[in-house]
Design a protein around this nucleic acid. Structure first.
Lengths: 207, 207
DNA sequence: GTCTATATAGCGATAGAC
DNA sequence: GTCTATCGCTATATAGAC
């Protein structure tokens, strides 16, 4: 295992550079508009060389998703030390995803592209990472509901899906485009609408 | 003006059929994956005939958006008779958009496709309709905030964008795909998370 | 393993007959 | 105004030299 380490490390560095480019381009243009030629040009290699590392455009996107999920896992692992409450950790994760989006590093995949979904649903590493992240979040969600800091009338999976959806909420780029708000203010506003809702927390709920 | 009415009415019926097909296909596959060949096949005419009515694929999508916005306007015009409060009207609109999505008739446009955005930003009818709908919603938003039924610390435009975003929220199809919830339940859950937030209304806000 | 050059295919749009 | 047939372009993916 240590024998081929040098060549393999060089390879890994190259592939990391590729995935980083893919990640940025996915965030900037989305999967459908991103072309493999662009990726190759951005990395500075020929397209054919790219296909030596990844079998298809879909595999490139999957690698970028794995990268982001791994980053999320690393961030979540630090939270028990800084955030004492489950709700605090969930909000910290939501804030982290929004910061990623503001930084132009949140890959955006169309929910409808079937060839891409097929690849993702057959991609073991992606599924594993997604599962691990979901498990950890689900744990915190249930704990927050038990503490009464999250609405326990909501199915935990709905809360999970909502957090995933807010990670790529189109409201964020629209707010950003108005130029009226600082990045910090955008994040605070979106956290407010996500967790507190539009009604406002202490006010009336009904009607 | 009355002279050509018959031929023009025939034309209009044909075009309505085209736009209805486009609307359904946009909801089903999204703009990027929808092909003009499919539209022609769905309507039952040749592609060249389609291009006699609409200049481009982007114009087709714009027509579908105008259709939906017009339907929304018609629905909103009925609300003062049935919904006494501004918040009630906003919730009714949100519910209506979710029903449209559940019915498979909410066209989904990518927020990133630039050629499409260019066409939309130059499409007078679309811009007018969009403006009218936004104006009416904005009015109700401000009223609801004044009554204390919507959080008045949120910029009204943020509330507006949020309502637009929830109209095509990806959480809805995901919930639907689990098969665990009735359509009515899905709508209630999403209204709850949108207006009441994840925290739950009477509970603690901070942390 | 990286390159240049090319195969292959799908799609938006149009020509031209009727 | 509708059709069939086709153009022209772009993008994924691959062949083959080095």
């Amino acid at each position: 295992m240590a024998k081929v380490s040098f060549r393999e490390q060089v390879l890994k560095v190259r592939e990391d550079a590729i995935v980083a480019s893919v990640n940025r381009l996915l965030a900037e243009k989305g999967f459908d508009l991103m072309t493999v030629d662009e990726v190759a040009a951005d990395v500075g290699i020929a397209k054919a060389s790219l296909y030596r590392h990844f079998a298809s455009k879909e595999e490139l996107a999957a690698a970028a998703m794995v990268r982001v999920l791994t980053l999320a896992q690393a961030f979540m692992a630090t939270l028990p030390a800084t955030e004492p409450t489950p709700l605090g950790r969930l909000k910290a994760v939501a804030r982290w995803t929004m910061q990623l989006q503001l930084a132009g590093e949140m890959p955006s995949l169309p929910s409808q592209n079937s060839s891409l979904r097929t690849t993702l649903m057959g991609h073991e590493t992606y599924l594993t990472r997604l599962n691990e992240v979901s498990e950890q979040l689900g744990e915190w969600i249930v704990q927050a509901q038990q503490q009464g800091s999250l609405d326990d009338s909501l199915p935990p999976e709905l809360v999970l899906y909502t957090l995933f959806a807010r990670a790529c909420d189109p409201v964020l780029p629209v707010l950003k485009a108005t130029g009226q708000y600082s990045d910090e203010r955008i994040i605070e506003l979106l956290l407010q609408t996500c967790f507190g809702g539009l009604n406002g927390a202490p006010g009336p709920t009904g009607t």
